[in-house]
Write a protein that binds this DNA or RNA. Structure first.
Lengths: 127, 127
DNA sequence: TATAATAATAGTAATTATTACTATTATCGG
DNA sequence: CCGATAATAGTAATAATTACTATTATTATA
């Protein structure tokens, strides 16, 4: 594997984001400093960085995938009002997967769940 | 809302399936008894039946959605080896959502989680 | 340092599941 | 039986992502 400025830039952008950017958003930011970077390059490198374990992909159903600099185990919540993605950090380790594995005999690989809901802020505005 | 043979057939097919069919599969089965039914009709009616609460949609990331005759609360596991979708029925009510709602302040709407993993049968074959 | 092998890129085309569109057909209350 | 309109078949469009290909950049080594 060879070094590339594009890949370094893409990793920097994700690492400096605080809002789980989509490939599109990474692409838009990347173009500021590298105007003719290609969207395909952004996708390819984001997925490569996921494979290398340097970032995580948040698999969003019915929408664009998002990318996360935080690679430790945690879940996500997507707000159906504002569309933002929030981290869900549980203090105690998940029991749900253990319970399921024991009662079914299957092995669970996904540990990152994506919930849909309404975030704290949007709940305030509803009143 | 008017009655339609297409819709009745589609509901029948889902209700007689034991394997969470995709729209494609429903379409293929439907064509046996109604050769010029349209795929668009299948999609429209499946989604309509979901809205009416008569069936459920299993939102599969990176693949075709699946439909389920069982409308009571339960989760699913998709096997990454054989691609089958399994029901996950938990005896005790989910505590996970309650824990998340209390610790974050968000409201969770999804109660049907889709896990990825390796099913019992495929685990046997691996040995 | 020059060079050869090849990894990575830009730009475009293709893919895949699903939805939108539209003219025609089927349903059903009066 | 008939008119209003819901539903359909068939086709086109959409949207996110991946595949393809000629060109460019990187890096090991002579």
């Amino acid at each position: 594997m060879k070094n590339s400025n594009q890949r370094n830039l893409i990793l920097d952008i994700v690492n400096n984001s605080h809002n789980h950017p989509t490939a599109d958003i990474v692409y838009a930011i990347a173009k500021d400093s590298m105007p003719n970077i290609s969207l395909g390059t952004v996708y390819r490198n984001l997925n490569l960085l996921v494979e290398l374990g340097q970032i995580k992909k948040i698999a969003i159903y019915n929408g664009q995938d998002r990318f996360d600099k935080t690679i430790t185990h945690h879940h996500h919540l997507v707000c159906i009002k504002c569309g933002r993605t929030f981290d869900i950090l549980l203090e105690d380790k998940d029991e749900l997967c253990n319970v399921i594995e024991k009662s079914t005999g299957h092995t669970i690989i996904t540990n990152d769940l994506v919930f849909k809901g309404i975030c704290k802020d949007c709940k305030k505005e509803e009143r």
